[in-house]
Design a protein around this nucleic acid. Structure first.
Length: 475
DNA sequence: TTTTGAGTTGTTCGA
DNA sequence: GTCGAACAACTCAAA
């Protein structure tokens, strides 16, 4: 009988370019497993939207594995030790994760398993560069993106070429495996009706989406990615988060079509992958990224606390149409266009002066692509407390941003239908529209669309003052 | 060690 | 309407 291994799937729900699966398949019969470890995750337990995605992604993986995926619910440490004994396992394979709680958990599991005489093999399956490979000369880590990425590109040779699907897989089913449905990942209230229509989940869909983007969306990406109504973004983020596709596959396919006519677009797209790397890099080198200001001086920032304001923001009822469109896109589709993410985040942090953590928490629950590294790093970037963050006087104006990037209002009208008949001239500041115009558009401010919840100019000044305070109090 | 130049995505004001 | 400068200084990276 061949030796038996467990391949533990985590954030790598794919069978091609999967180093753990590939290497295990060379010498072992395989029990592929997935564990829903809510207890281990603690307060970083997956949010509602992510759980929905996970369900469908596991369904897809199960099919790729011919129904042999074994599923469990519980503490990973305990489950693995039991499984190893019960199934007579010689080795365990996995691809590395980088969330602090997972790093700690996995190290401890590795030790326990080795103590039991089980071999453990871990691989890099989700980053182009390991965070400890890119360091400054004095071995400390980069805190500014551009030099980080430049240094990383000098190591382009370290990027693994994608691996093929394993040629021969001998998969084993544990009779005591749970059913996918027993994980209860799907919502009780069917809020996923619209989301279902927007997304195709799984490894095949991810690759299809990448190829389609490279084919039709990449040309013009550099500019087009700023316009939320246009098709010039890849929308790969949830697929990347769950590892249905690896950054290596994306990088490789993109580089293959490199030509002079798309050079700038391509470089910009690859830079976005670079930001993903940078976020993970920061999280590994500063594990408190999700709950502590990267820049200590922000601990003294005079944040407001206002549950009603927060709620208005969450529900897309701020009275600023672009902000509301974004927040409603998030709620309805589990996604938000990058440009609009910046606008709504700037609004929360700088116009409402609410703590970035409130935004981070809401995104965590609502985003299909909720990712601890990206979410924390990006919120801190907007707040100004992060690494290489936006300068504090950079405060987005949701009116200007709307007029610049959603000129015809295609995006805003879609998600704020009560304003759909308002002329573009007033779409982003309806309170300044003449009564007749409002009437003709069927808009009654304060009734079917809110009055603005803050004054932009005033709140902007207030934010600038708050940041100035910060500067003087830290001396 | 010291010095120098640079740093994702913006807005407003005044000429 | 358009354009350049100011916004504020600090930290980081590299020579």
């Amino acid at each position: 009988m061949k030796k038996r291994a467990i391949v533990w799937f985590r954030q790598d729900l794919r069978i091609s370019d999967n180093p753990a699966l590939y290497n295990a398949a060379l010498n072992y019969d395989i029990f592929p497993i997935y564990i829903l470890d809510d207890e281990g995750a603690g307060h970083q337990r997956m949010g509602g939207a992510s759980r929905w995605w996970l369900h469908h992604s596991l369904l897809s993986l199960e099919q790729s594995l011919l129904g042999k995926l074994n599923i469990y619910d519980g503490k990973a440490q305990k489950l693995l030790t039991q499984l190893v004994k019960r199934l007579n396992i010689n080795a365990v394979f996995w691809n590395r994760c980088y969330e602090p709680w997972r790093i700690e958990r996995d190290m401890s599991i590795k030790e326990t398993l080795k103590g039991e005489g089980v071999k453990v093999f871990s691989f890099n399956g989700s980053l182009l560069w390991e965070p400890w490979e890119i360091l400054k000369e004095d071995k400390s880590f980069y805190k500014v993106f551009t030099p980080f990425f430049k240094a990383a590109l000098k190591h382009e040779g370290l990027i693994r070429d994608p691996l093929p699907k394993p040629l021969h897989l001998n998969l084993l089913k544990d009779q005591k495996s749970q059913n996918l449905s027993s994980l209860n990942l799907l919502p009780v209230v069917p809020w996923d009706k619209y989301i279902k229509k927007c997304w195709h989940v799984g490894e095949k869909a991810a690759m299809k989406k990448l190829l389609n983007f490279l084919d039709t969306g990449l040309l013009g990406y550099q500019k087009g990615r700023d316009y939320p109504a246009s098709e010039h973004v890849s929308r790969l983020s949830p697929h990347l988060h769950f590892g249905e596709i690896s950054p290596n596959q994306v990088w490789h396919k993109a580089q293959k079509i490199r030509s002079s006519s798309i050079r700038l677009d391509l470089d910009h797209f690859l830079t976005e992958l670079g930001w993903r790397e940078f976020s993970y890099y920061l999280l590994v080198h500063f594990p408190k990224l999700s709950h502590e200001n990267f820049q200590k001086k922000f601990d003294a920032f005079p944040w407001h606390y206002d549950p009603l304001m927060l709620k208005a923001w969450q529900q897309g009822q701020t009275g600023y149409p672009l902000v509301d469109a974004g927040m409603r896109e998030l709620w309805q589709t589990g996604y938000m266009h990058n440009r609009v993410r910046m606008v709504v985040a700037s609004f929360l942090v700088k116009n409402l002066l609410l703590h970035w953590h409130e935004g981070e928490k809401w995104f965590w629950d609502c985003l299909l692509d909720a990712d601890l590294a990206n979410n924390s790093a990006s919120w801190q970037w907007v707040a100004g407390s992060g690494a290489d963050a936006a300068p504090y006087f950079r405060i987005f104006n949701p009116i200007t941003q709307g007029e610049k990037f959603d000129k015809e209002g295609l995006y805003t009208r879609k998600f704020v239908p009560e304003l759909s008949r308002l002329p573009s001239k007033y779409l982003f500041h309806p309170w300044e529209a003449p009564d007749l115009v409002l009437k003709q558009a069927g808009v009654v401010l304060g009734l079917n669309y809110p009055q603005p919840i803050v004054n932009l100019a005033f709140s902007r000044e207030q934010a600038l003052d708050a940041y100035t305070t910060l500067k003087s109090t830290t001396k």
